[in-house]
Amino acid sequence: MSDKLIACQGLSKAYGRKPALSGVDLEVGRGRIVGLLGPNGSGKTTLIKLLCGLIQPTAGTLAVDGLPIGPETKALISYLPDRMYFASWMRATDLFDLFRDFYRDFDYDKALAMCRSLGVEPRDRIKTMSKGTKEKVQLVLVMARKAQLYLLDEPIAGVDPAARDFILRTILTNYNEEGSVLISTHLIADIEKVLDEAVFLKEGKLVLHETVDNIREREGRSVDALFREIFRAQPMGDLEGGAF
């Protein structure tokens, strides 16, 4: 077991000729909640997909718990993608069965208990569920594992503020505290209070990796305020609406 859950050196990824990540050096330890922050197109999802092995790096090295990406690292990672990955014929319980079969750290009873608290009927077919309920099922699958590394790609994007609090509370009350959580988002104000560290990505480059306490102490302002400062100078098309 390595102290560094994530270790990347010179990590780059290009889609055709367009670079998505350029020379990223990053290390993340254990027991941390890390915000992967940046505007749309800054490389957040690309970094998470590289960690999951869904895409391959163009250059550089990448390790999870000291291991190269493969079946061993996939067993350590609990991944919440930015899309639905269900087969339409399945019920939530089918997915729970699947996770129990493949992940030793999946807690079936906890998944059922989370369904009850989230108001999800696990015997319903996925295709009959609303978009919000499907998102809850996916969140249950991810958080019912006692994983070493949780990779949550935009878990609060596209939901109303009340639902954001609900999702964050679910994450915070269910994650394995011996592991780490990497949350990608551009909605910083909503998650700032739960973060230990912040990683800023800008046009595929890592521009800041600091503890939230240090940012507040050194900069004398919130992570959200610093984010707005760093990305304010960017052309309009590259920014979220709230930055101006």
Partner: peptide, 10 residues
């Protein structure tokens, strides 16, 4: 999309 599940299985 189902590949996001299948390709992340160990």
């Amino acid at each position: 999309n189902e590949g996001y599940l299948m390709n992340t299985l160990p």
